[in-house]
Simulated scan of single mutants.
Amino acid sequence: MQRSGPLHTLLAGLALALIMLSLNATTGDVASSAPSTSSAPSSGPSPSPGVSRTPPASAAPTPRSSPGRGAPPDADYAGRTADGAASVAVALRKGKAVAYVCDGRTKEAWLRGDLGDDGALRLTDGHGARLDGTLRGTTISGDVALTGLRQPFEARKAVKPSGLYRATASVRGAKVVGGWIVLQSGAQVGIVSRDGEPSAAPSIDTGSGAVTVDGERLTARPIP
C-alpha cells in the first residue's frame, strides 16, 4: 500500500501559496494605480507657460504740499524819513502791525493794519494818516503821510533796547499817552500828549522803561 498523504499535503500547500502570491500581486497593482488622498491641495492654477506674474504696482506716494509763507517773527523796525524830520517805528506781532510816526515836537500818529503775504503794509490811523511800505528781509521801506508831513522812509530791524515804546496813564486828571522811538544810535524821539495836546517827551530809561511825566513816575513798555 502506497503512502500518498504527505505528497498530497505538499501539493496542496504549494497550490495555496501560488494563489496567495497571485492575490498579493493583484492587490499591489490596484493600490498603486489609485490616486493618493494624502497629497497637499493645489494652491491654484499654474501660470500659463511663457507668462510671468507681475506684482501690482504700489500706489505712488502722495506729494507733500510745500508749506506756505508764514508770518515773520515778531520784531520792531526803527528809522527816519528821508529828510530826517521825523522818525518811524513799526512793531510786527503775529502778522499784525502797529506803527508810530513822530517828529518829537507836535506831529505824531499811531497807525495799525495787517502785514500782507507779499510783505506789504497798508496802515492807517482813522484820521487821514497813512503808511504804505514793504518788508524785505530786515528792512521796511515806503512812504508815510500825515498832516504837514509826506516823506519816504526806511526802518531797519531794531535790536533791543532800540524799538517802539508806549505809556498810558492818568496824571493829575489828564489822560496821558506817550510814544517813544529809540533808534539804533540810542537817540530817542517821542511825544507825550495830555488830553490830546502834544509836546516833546522826556527821555525814558531804556533798561526799565521808567519816565517821569509831570512829577508822576510812569513806565513805557514795548508794544505787546
Rank of each mutant, 00 (worst) to 15 (best):
A220K: 01
Q151E: 11
G148E: 08
A82M: 07
S4P: 12
A15Q: 09
G44H: 00
T139L: 02
S48C: 12
L218T: 05
P6T: 09
D76H: 06
V176F: 03
R136N: 13
R93G: 06
D29H: 12
R194F: 15
I181G: 00
G207E: 11
L11I: 13
L164V: 04
A89Y: 01
H127L: 14
S58Y: 05
K175A: 15
L21N: 07
R172N: 15
A187D: 13
A200R: 13
T168Q: 12
G209V: 02
I19N: 10
R122P: 03
A169R: 00
W110K: 06
G137S: 08
A71V: 14
S58R: 13
A129M: 03
D76V: 02
T124G: 12
L131D: 07
G113Q: 01
L218A: 03
G128P: 00
A15P: 00
P56N: 08
I204V: 05
A155N: 06
I204S: 04
A169Y: 04
G113K: 01
K175C: 03
G128D: 06
D125S: 00
P202G: 05
P55S: 11
D114W: 02
S58V: 10
G44I: 06
L11C: 11
G163D: 03
S32W: 13
D103W: 04
K160L: 15
K175H: 14
S38L: 12
S39H: 06
R69G: 11
G116S: 14
W110Y: 10
G113V: 07
V213W: 01
G113P: 01
P56A: 08
G113I: 00
V176H: 07
A82D: 12
G28R: 13
L149N: 04
T147H: 11
P35F: 10
P222S: 08
A59E: 08
W180D: 05
A91W: 04
T106L: 13
W180N: 02
